[in-house]
């Protein structure tokens, strides 16, 4: 064991324990860690934004290479920031128009293709009882159909239709169960990350192998 001499590691441990102390109860250490996280994240983001975007993609092209066309999007960007000035905040709407229009125009057809048409295509499978793949395909087909029936509310869930909707609920429950299991796993992984940091980086324990 070799305790770290790096001040940043000590700070990391302090903030890790401060955040975890919330599990006992809310306290000033937790609040301090929360506020520092927000402040540091924003400061870090501003520096990277300047170094990797504004300087190489605006300052140099405009002032060194004479690409003055870039001033137009820069003005739109400034108009967006004017939201914080009540008198001029209406100007931000023009910039938002471009963002919303462009975003929707680019996103809607692609989403339709990727998340609806391709997914529909993936349910049109050869059904068979003679192979594991064929049986899997049957499960997928029944699952998609019954879940869609469950979400069809224009007809009362009675009789055969109601039975199919009930099967749909079972498929949904299996899906929720899998998601819950994965969620537990994810939360534990985050804690594992912190434990590893304390044991390896702070206490200097050799855990490899």
């Amino acid at each position: 064991m070799q305790l770290s001499t790096n001040i940043w590691v000590w700070l990391g441990v302090f903030f890790t324990l401060s955040v975890l102390s919330f599990l006992y109860k809310d306290n000033p250490f937790y609040k301090l860690a929360e506020h520092v996280t927000v402040g540091v994240s924003i400061g870090y983001a501003i520096v990277l934004w300047w170094n990797l975007t504004v300087y190489p993609r605006f300052i140099i092209p405009v002032f060194e290479n004479g690409h003055f066309i870039l001033i137009i999007p820069a003005i739109l960007g400034l108009m967006m920031v004017l939201r914080i000035v009540p008198k001029w905040s209406w100007l931000s709407r023009y910039a938002i128009c471009f963002t919303v229009g462009g975003g929707a125009g680019m996103g809607i057809p692609r989403s339709m293709q990727a998340s609806v048409l391709r997914q529909l295509e993936a349910t049109m499978l050869p059904l068979s009882l003679n192979s594991a793949t064929g049986i899997n395909n049957i499960v997928i087909f029944i699952g998609v159909l019954t879940v869609l029936i469950y979400f069809f509310f224009s007809k009362e869930h009675k009789g055969v239709f109601g039975g199919a909707a009930k099967i749909g609920i079972w498929f949904l429950m299996v899906g929720f169960g899998a998601t819950f299991g994965y969620t537990v796993m994810a939360r534990l992984s985050l804690f594992i990350g912190r434990v590893l940091f304390i044991l390896q980086d702070f206490l200097g324990l050799n855990l490899a192998g």
């Binding site: 997914q119 295509e121 993936a122 997928i140 998601t179 994965y182 796993m185 994810a186 992984s189």
Partner: peptide
């Protein structure tokens, strides 16, 4: 992340993703 893993399976089944690493 493991939280999102269940949401990705349909895209693997459809062949849009070659594979996935789910969580730790």
């Amino acid at each position: 992340t493991a939280v999102s893993a269940a949401d990705v399976y349909p895209y693997i089944q459809s062949g849009q993703f070659i594979g996935m690493l789910g969580g730790l």
